[in-house]
Design a protein around this nucleic acid. Structure first.
Lengths: 226, 226, 226, 226
DNA sequence: TATGAATGAGCGTTCATTCAT
DNA sequence: CATGAATGAACGCTCATTCAT
């Protein structure tokens, strides 16, 4: 039986593919599972994608593209950060993290798939690319913080970078498995606090404590009124 | 006497299997690839393992068993830790971490496979089991530290636990990908220092700085003389 | 519309499967042989049957189902047989046998496979089930005949049942191997005559002789005019 | 470990093979099963038999050879039967049947295997050979009986032969499945009686009744004293 | 003779991809 | 665009047979 031409066929297939990929991994997902989930025929799949792998890459790309845009924007903003007072810095840092983690939450399913290797070894290198990128960015930030005097001067940049990146990495891996959206702001405030304590000068730590206390109470007020 | 079994056949197969599994994942690895890499026939594989999965589990088990032993031993020692002076505590903590990470290094290839999900979705749960275990252990330690007064009293146990576990998790994921063995002691001293700064009371932090300085110089001396 | 399924694909496969099963037995038959004989690809086989065994069972079931229907109908009719005059009884008996043996002829190839154990030991029990059923039915008929007075009173029911069932069993095994359809009526008249002589009272034997003579001449006339 | 040279190795293998063949059929029997059952190595099997099939044929041959000898002897005796009085004929007939069925009992396991097709389709033809042989022998006997006047003159030789052979065939198939040796004499007396009634002249039937009665009572006496 | 590790052809089954409609 | 029957390469696993000792 032929179905009425559906202009959403392609997106229906993508949505279904994502679901099935997440459930069974790239290799474990059968094209027929995907098309059945999209209420389309197997043939339709090949009208829209060259191969199964092709569909996977497309799904992946859409998530990575959005994340890439955010990261690039943040990178540009950073150049303008110099000499801001601590509280502003801390706020901006937090906002940046929030944007990234919101994006992760939005694409949590594929991100999880990639993070947990479900995309078959073919896509393992992606984790490296991301992890390395995160680590380098972090190291640059740490370096910058030391130069600006708000991070301790005795830090080993590489180690500190790894440690901080690790904290966020862990958070990302946790987020990606949550069923309901957690209070991202609270999560990030927590990590930030610990990072700052680990790396920061006493002045920064003090500033941090104040900003966080304020932010937390605001956040609580927002939640109450909502 | 029968044709003497190649006494290395089994271990050659295990080594080859590990290599191929890592390269292609559990599902992607073809039995024939494994046997070819071990210079044996397909049939020989089934002389030693019931199924492909069986071989994978065996490889996994040998790593997990060793790790399990270490973790259990450490757990038992911990009961005797109460009331030790800070420097001793810090040393013991470091030694424990060293044992664990030495074990991870020894089994890095298979650990990497598991950590990166290459064992097909069937083995995803193992990561959870380990991650949850690590997190809980960490939380217990944090709780204990707070009670004993060497961790700050205002810590959120869950968040701190997650953060610390994340730092080590990241370290493990990095270790597992290194080609040459890094200076584990230095790595761990670094993470420990950052963790203690993030969580510890000023007294603990001070003790930590001293112990670490001493340890690092000893380590450096050992390396020079070697 | 999809590529229209070859409407004969399934039946072509069934026919080919039957042929190959008969030639090589269930275990010896290769799926590829079957599909080649049906001018289809190996994959096509699995579009229609879950497994090779499944196909075998389907072939078997279609034959057994038809036979089962006939046997059940006959069983029901038998209740109405009491007190009929001998000639009628003999005619009805013959008609029943004819229906059964026509069915056997129709499904001779698969019946032969089962009778000769070609369905691998897994299906041996089927022969028992049928043989036991036939034997019991026969014994019940013998018992009934003794009670009604048309079988000799000195018969050992079990032995006589076994003997008669054996006669028919042999006939069935022979039929199943014939290349051209034999004159079933003549065959069955023959067995019936011998059975009745072996078991019957003089009166029954006499009635039998008359009925058979008449039946044979009718049958001959039909054949001449055809 | 090498075993002490065992002069019975070959026969132990044959015995084990027979057991395993019977249990699983020719195709289903694994060489390793056989050698394990014989407490020998797989290699040993191939010292004594060229192939698995070879072993099967040997087992089969030993049974068929013995049966063949008996059948040939009986055939020779038959030439001397002419003109014997009925009671002697009947006795001799019975004795011949007894020898054959004793032999069947002795080799019941392989006979069963062959009869039920467990020897894979490759050996189906053997059943034909036997069945045809039995049928022909029977037909010759029927013909002879008609000529000598102790079988009814109106018999269709072919049909009667088939019927009688069928009766014995059924008996053989039953025997071959018994777990404990039945009273063969009684079984055969039963079939003989029915056959004679089906085929014989009134005089023969009468003679038969007497002989059988006597034989049964003798048999009973023997059993009591044993 | 005896052993049992090693071999490798072979088969059932799966599933990505193609194609006739 | 859409369909789903058809294709066939691929792979896991089995087991008869060989062979080095």
């Amino acid at each position: 039986m032929s179905r009425p031409s559906d202009p959403n066929a392609r997106s229906r297939l993508l949505a279904a593919a994502e679901r099935i990929f997440i459930e069974h991994g790239l290799d474990g997902a059968k094209v027929e599972d995907i098309t059945r989930a999209a209420s389309l025929s197997k043939g339709a799949f090949y009208l829209h994608f060259k191969t199964k792998d092709d569909a996977f890459q497309e799904i992946l790309a859409s998530a990575l593209a959005e994340l890439g845009v955010i990261l690039r924007e943040l990178e540009e903003q950073r150049d303008a950060w110099t000499d801001r007072p601590y509280p502003v810095l801390i706020e901006q840092w937090l906002d940046a993290d929030l944007r990234i983690f919101e994006c992760l939450w939005k694409h949590r399913s594929i991100m999880r798939l990639v993070l947990e290797g479900g995309g078959s070894p073919k896509y393992h290198h992606l984790i490296d690319v991301f992890a390395d990128g995160a680590q380098q960015t972090t190291e640059r930030l740490v370096q910058h913080g030391i130069e600006q005097g708000y991070y301790r001067a005795d830090l080993d940049v590489k180690q500190a970078g790894c440690f901080v990146a690790g904290g966020y990495d862990r958070l990302a891996r946790r987020l990606v498995r949550e069923r309901r959206k957690p209070n991202l702001e609270r999560w990030l405030l927590g990590v930030e606090a610990l990072c700052l304590r680990a790396l920061g000068t006493p002045e920064l730590i003090e500033a941090c404590v104040n900003v966080h206390a304020q932010r937390l109470s605001e956040s609580a007020r927002r939640r109450r009124s909502a």
